[in-house]
Amino acid sequence: MNGAARARPESGVELYAWLFMRVSGLALLFLALGHLLIMHVIHNVETIDYQFVAHRFMTPFWRTYDLVMLWLALLHGLNGARTMIEDYVGARGWRVFSLASLYILGFIFLALGSLVILTFQPVGTS
């Protein structure tokens, strides 16, 4: 490796990824704890059904809450997985394949989740 005095400026993507991990991690700490509290402590898991979710999703607040949590958690996890792939998948072909699969899967989950949260119409709730 000839690395002497090699400057390799980059656009700073890694900087923003690093910052995002810290900010989203902090936000998720409260969002996920709140979620845990509501879904598992305040309400028993057995009482959570379609009606419960439908009732909850009538207010824009909870839709926003879930949407923000979905995006932050998924992107936070995706970036963590990207980091691991970039650290440990050395062969170029495998790396490109793994990253491509990761991004495609991530996009599908993000799109599906957002679709449900944004377009959900309660049926048969009082």
């Binding site: 980059e10 890694e14 970039e86």
Partner: peptide, 9 residues
Amino acid sequence: ILNHRDGVW
């Protein structure tokens, strides 16, 4: 110099 993938990040 340190602001790239193989730098501090």
